[in-house]
Design a protein around this nucleic acid. Sequence first.
DNA 1: GCATATTTGTCCGTATGTATA
DNA 2: CTATACATACGGACAAATATG
Lengths: 225, 225
Amino acid sequence: MAALEHDRSRLGRSSTAERVADILRERIIEGLFVPGERLSEEAIGSALGVSRNTLREAFRLLGHERLLDHKLNRGVFVRVLSAADVADLYRMRRVLEGAAVRRCAEASPEALRLIGETCGGGRTLGLRRQVAGRRYRQQPFSHQALVALNQSPRLDETMRQLLAELRLVFHAMRNPRSLHEPFVERNRLLLGLLEARRAEDAATYLEIYLDDAERLLLQAYEPAG
Amino acid sequence: MAALEHDRSRLGRSSTAERVADILRERIIEGLFVPGERLSEEAIGSALGVSRNTLREAFRLLGHERLLDHKLNRGVFVRVLSAADVADLYRMRRVLEGAAVRRCAEASPEALRLIGETCGGGRTLGLRRQVAGRRYRQQPFSHQALVALNQSPRLDETMRQLLAELRLVFHAMRNPRSLHEPFVERNRLLLGLLEARRAEDAATYLEIYLDDAERLLLQAYEPAG
DNA sequence: GCATATTTGTCCGTATGTATA
DNA sequence: CTATACATACGGACAAATATG
């Protein structure tokens, strides 16, 4: 890998550490770095053409996002989530997505449309570029856009980090696709309830949805983790 | 300030950067560093007896918590929240605390008791030590403990960061106390609803509570910010 | 507007301590 | 147990950006 291009194009300038964090975050989310893998300062630093000090700043950022696990004097590792972590993530989803569906009555048509948008696969950042050799899932339901109904940038960011963590679970499994497919129909149904502005029905349905999703995920994950 | 004591006492070891972050976080929350103030790498590094590299790692952590504002080539500043930030924090509170009160029926008596505990003033970490010359508020209602009803460590942490940010608002004002006092009675009333397990009433009351709190806070903050 | 001083951003070298083969 | 590898943390260096007079 070549050294980082120093973009610095006008506004939104960012430090090298932040750009390195972006790169590493992407690789973790895409599964190029698998959970449990150790990230060597020496190896990655030289591969990215940055000093160890700069790289360590990036590691701190990703550690704070719970994507990396900092073990003192042992290095940083891609996070391996426990079953308790998975349960916690779903408790969060119930809160964040539950609050969102309850506000569907006051949501703009545009906001609702974004939930069903087929492009982007759930992430709102400009990350839709094709990753080599990796099929890009086209899920016609964005839970990120759902949470956006709360109209809170901070909750959006929280959800983004939550979904990134959930990726770690899937990357630690052998057949993650099989867990998504049973839910495409449910997603469609949920979206229908939202468009009909039936907030309470949607909330009830979401609870069942997430209960099932959590249970199925834990069943498939437990033996691996 | 003397150099950091290298504790390293068995389990729960932490790096110097994390310990420095803890110290700086505490000072920001206590208002010893006021919003807008620039934190010099040189000054703080030598004051704490750590190198610039280590200090910068700590800065990254606090920046990620939104307590510090990183301005490229200009340094780090104690965050100054905008009115939009305050509104966002209250949107979050409605979601996190709203979900919590809705679960009061299934809350343990112990969990409810903690909300009304008079010691600690809202924070669950062992931070109840007396800060010199700073009166310690004894609020008999912990919104942190309320959010804990969600039984999610991650939401607990989110709430902790949220309350830390809110502190920034109060430290940027001249008379922060006056905004708390009108709510001690409301807190008592809300706690009564929770203890009576009247979830829906509590949720409704909380909405009004937070609407008022946000409005009053913005009124008092707008001219300053 | 310009020259200078200050401060950040980033890198390197190195000593020390810790974990692991 | 020794040896090796690596993370931790420090201090110094220099360029670039910014603040100051």
